[in-house]
Design a protein around this nucleic acid. Structure first.
Length: 431
RNA sequence: GCGGUCGUGGUGAAGCUGGUUAACACAACGGAUUGUGGCUCCGUCAUGCGCGAGUUCGAGUCUCGUCGAUCGCCCCA
């Protein structure tokens, strides 16, 4: 017999953890609905081309994807991110023809990246994200950031910071790219190996490099803000004005670029500033993408979105002592004494039909052991199905708060349970 | 892809420079107390130390490999 383990970088969600996830999901979904977002569900795998677009230089796309083929011809990939699939769906289903634009959608589910796992980073991980496709306005950028921000705040997390930047439109970025290449080329030898490669492929990423962050070359690097054309500058100013109006604090980080290549104009990252989440400080991040819809064959419309890492959210919530695991408490526990056949199951089922969270004893165990279970579950009421009482058509019902016990006929079982539960709830309320 | 630390029952863990019965605590189960609990006392609970090889008279302890976990680099949510 072989002992199996879950694959590296994956994890099981235990019942306790599932309770947290459910609560998180509920909070995020209801806030998204509040902002006019509706859920979309796309396949967990797509044609590889959906994710791997021409000229894409990101590590995520080039070396971290789970790609497979069932016949040696076609190629599919487990989604490493949510945006591409949603945009593909927007185009394929001609959502651009919907009367109301933009189309606002949120998604939730697993993403897959073949990375080396560490704190807050897994190979299969959950993301919650939004996409707002079909319109371009600084107000939409700000609204998206505000939505994510309110999610964080609603969850009770406080130690976060919004970093924001603008990559400008195509023209601005082209100019900037040229400037950067020109600036770095004479210093190529001073850069790290990765950055030498980036110099040709995607010089913007050099700004993001941690290795070269302290490199003297970086000190006088031209900033994108100086390369933005007038429309791009104006757009960025307006986005910031919107954030000001919404009283969302932010810092402008002129060196912020993102890992995906499709971003234009607004990019942002919201990170934890306690350092307690390990090296993975980014809680949610995203930005605007002008070219993606048309890349998939749709019209020249823009989109905006962000993605949020659930594992990191939970990590931070626990760190800040936010309670996410309010588990529903057991109301009734049915004990069995002697040879009582299927009665405990029947009595439990009847209690459940009354709306009580109920569990029961199914195997011969000592009274003491059964009471221990009752204590552990902190059940409000114990029903004791005793052999001799049942023989007379009766059952014991005990109020675990007052320890009072009554013996009633089976016909009065439901009514007695209801009365006792009402007493207990009233008692608790008055405390 | 690279580097550090770690891997002992259901859980938390002891285990010294290898030495022969793998501590202790919690939980669980049974009993003291034939059917009314949370206290107390007693008892039971790893034929084995992630897995596989090697060194040795002898390995949880040393070596190598392997698989995992964890943290960092890189990258990213």
């Amino acid at each position: 017999m072989k002992n199996y383990q879950n694959p590296k970088g994956t994890y099981d969600v235990s019942p306790e953890m599932a309770a947290k996830y459910q609560q998180l999901e509920g909070t995020l979904e209801s806030l998204a609905h509040f902002y006019g977002y509706e859920e979309i569900r796309t396949p967990i795998f797509e044609d590889t081309g959906v994710f791997k677009r021409e000229n894409d230089s990101s590590d995520m796309v080039n070396k971290e994807m789970y790609t497979f083929s069932m016949n040696g011809k076609d190629s599919f990939t487990l989604r490493p991110e949510g945006t591409a699939g949603v945009v593909r769906s927007y185009v394929q289903n001609k959502m651009y023809a919907n009367a109301d634009q933009p189309v606002k959608m949120y998604y939730y589910g697993p993403m897959f990246r073949h990375e080396h796992p560490q704190k807050g980073r897994y190979r299969q991980f959950e993301q919650f994200g939004i996409e707002c496709i079909g319109a371009k306005s600084p107000m939409l950028d700000a609204e998206g950031i505000a939505l994510g921000y309110s999610m964080i705040k609603t969850l009770g997390l406080s130690n976060v910071r919004v970093r924001i930047n603008s990559l400008g439109d195509d023209e601005s970025r082209k100019n900037y790219r040229a400037k950067l290449t020109e600036y770095f080329r004479p210093h190529a030898e001073e850069l790290c190996a990765d950055c030498k490669r980036r110099l040709e492929q995607n010089p913007l990423r050099i700004l993001d490099c941690k290795v070269d962050a302290d490199n003297p070359v970086m000190k006088d690097v031209p900033l994108i803000s100086d390369s933005l054309n007038e429309p791009s500058k104006e757009y960025f100013r307006e986005v910031l004005a919107c954030l000001d109006a919404l009283v969302i604090p932010y810092v402008i980080d002129p060196k912020l670029v993102r890992g995906l290549d499709y971003y234009t104009d607004t990019v942002f990252e919201v990170e934890n500033i306690t350092g307690k989440a390990g090296a993975q400080a980014t809680v949610f991040a995203g930005g605007r993408y002008d070219g993606l819809v048309s890349y998939f064959g749709g019209p020249e419309v823009s989109g905006f979105g962000f993605a949020m890492g659930m594992e990191r959210l939970i990590l931070l919530a626990e760190d800040e002592g936010v309670k996410l695991d309010e588990k529903p408490k057991t109301d009734v526990y049915v004990m069995s004494l002697g040879n009582v056949g299927t009665k405990p199951l029947e009595l439990a089922t009847e209690a459940r039909a009354l709306g009580y969270i109920t569990d029961f004893n199914y195997a011969p165990r000592s009274l003491k052991a059964q009471f221990k279970t009752v204590d552990r579950l902190d059940a409000k009421i114990t029903v004791i199905a005793g052999e001799s009482e049942l023989a007379e058509g009766k059952v014991n019902i005990k109020n675990n708060r007052t320890k009072e016990q009554v013996t009633v006929s089976l016909e009065d079982y439901a009514d007695t349970l209801d009365e006792m539960m009402e007493d207990i709830l009233n008692e608790t309320d008055s405390l």
